[in-house]
Design a protein around this nucleic acid. Structure first.
Lengths: 265, 265
DNA sequence: AAGTGTGAACTAGTTCACAGCT
DNA sequence: AGCTGTGAACTAGTTCACACTT
């Protein structure tokens, strides 16, 4: 590769895969730790272990950024920290607003990982007038009436939504109208945004539900039959298995013949 | 497989793709909202819109669970709620412990989405003796000395780690040793666990960094040169670009000959 | 000898498009 | 007529394995 110039380098020049982008912060964290311990170089194997991925994946990821390693040696820690920081846009600092200063919003405001590495809490915003002026994590809360003004004045492009689900969409709309183009959503709701605006969501209950799915599977693996039966009885009243509307016996079934045990027929 | 018994149905029977599992909670939430509004049926198109995915994906996802829809009509809301709940293991209730009752842990303890749908906060645990006995969100905090006892007595299999990064791994080890097999990690660190234990992580700063990456890209798209230049000057001193160890000019470059536009050279 | 960088093979996930049921 | 369920085509992501560099 290194030799094949003449450009038109595949599709769209700087096409770093999304999955790779999502891992860069992980590498960066591991590298920063090494940097603090004054470790000069790492191999892909060592760094991968520290980041919790496998080394082939890590090398492939880095290959999208360029050739930043030295064969036979490894990667220069400081140099890589810089390159990844730059790639992620962390060499500039990003003012961030947090909207919704309840328990969660307050916890986020106080979170250390925020201040570090390129992010700065520009403002805390809440709709409750009783909160206005109250300092949270050393920053006075501002009223949401001023949301637009704050965003425009500070040139904020990243917003964090930590409001109740019911108002998240309207908050989002206002943020976007005021110029925010990236949103981190902690409210348990789907946000719709125009093209060009990025939304990422963090959702406790979704994560728990995914864990529960796998947990259930583990439980079922050993003592197959009776575990389910016991569970079913316990919750049978709480969660009634509603019959399908139309046909009752029909062809309605899971891929492995579900329902039977629960169905009162 | 109501009909085709004799098992060994393809690879490992109930092979629901991980990506599908991750979306089931989304569908469930949308369905629950419909259910509360007493909507009897939905089409894949409508439900997909509510869940923020496209309808082909939704139908494919549901096809892994079984044939729960009715052609020409759609899906019965109540029935689907039940089926997905069951699939996710939410028809039983899962006791959960939260370890680390700082700002975040307290916020999680008070989070409504917890109590709903199958999860119950069995205990709050903190290492600080000053916290012991103090009620948080109505639940008295217990000391971490009792961690093993609590987990065993309540049969807890899901643990939430909201401690500082420095102690997260040891907390994790103790949870696992005591019988926890699913962990939701809010500490910004990589946890290593034995086979059979699931870990999911929620990491604010990773999410922000991913947003920053895309944000940076957006900025570069319009007015390419000067926007970056301004930024570089501002932060040039703060983040020095360290030279690579060995060769200085060499072949070191991004896949499409990076730097040019931004570099003052 | 050590360890990167990367084509090639593979696996997972998404989207298409339409047959088939109600 | 309407909408699901799903093979088939496609796209993204991962892993392998080894040529190449230091």
């Amino acid at each position: 590769m290194a030799t094949g110039r003449t450009h038109r380098p595949a599709t769209r020049s700087r096409g770093i895969p999304e999955a790779t982008v999502a891992r860069l912060p992980l590498y960066l964290r591991a590298l920063t730790a090494l940097s603090e311990r004054s470790v000069p170089t790492v191999s892909s194997e060592e760094l991968a272990a520290a980041a919790g991925v496998n080394s082939a994946k890590l090398r492939k990821d880095f290959s999208y950024l360029g050739s930043y390693g030295t064969r036979g040696v490894g990667y220069d820690v400081e140099y890589l920290v810089y390159q990844i920081s730059r790639e992620l846009g962390l060499t500039q600092d990003w003012p961030v607003v947090i909207v919704g200063i309840g328990n969660l919003g307050a916890a986020l405001a106080g979170y250390g990982g925020f201040a570090s590495r390129g992010f700065r809490v520009a403002a805390l915003i809440d709709a409750d007038p009783a909160m206005t002026g109250k300092p949270v994590a050393g920053i006075p809360v501002q009223h949401s009436d001023d949301l637009e003004k704050i965003i425009e004045e500070d040139g904020v492009s990243i917003g964090v939504i930590a409001t109740p689900a019911g108002v998240a969409q309207q908050v989002c709309d206002r943020l976007v109208a005021a110029g925010v183009t990236s949103i981190l959503n902690f409210a348990p709701t789907v946000l719709s945004v125009p093209d060009g605006v990025d939304v990422r969501k963090v959702d406790l209950s979704i994560e728990l539900q995914i864990l529960a799915f796998h947990e259930q599977r583990k439980a079922g693996e050993e003592s197959n039959a009776e575990a389910d039966a016991a569970v079913d009885e316990e919750t049978a009243t709480a969660v009634a298995p509603p019959a399908p509307r139309g046909a009752t016996g029909g062809s309605r079934k899971g891929p492995d013949g579900d329902v039977p045990a629960v169905m009162p027929a």
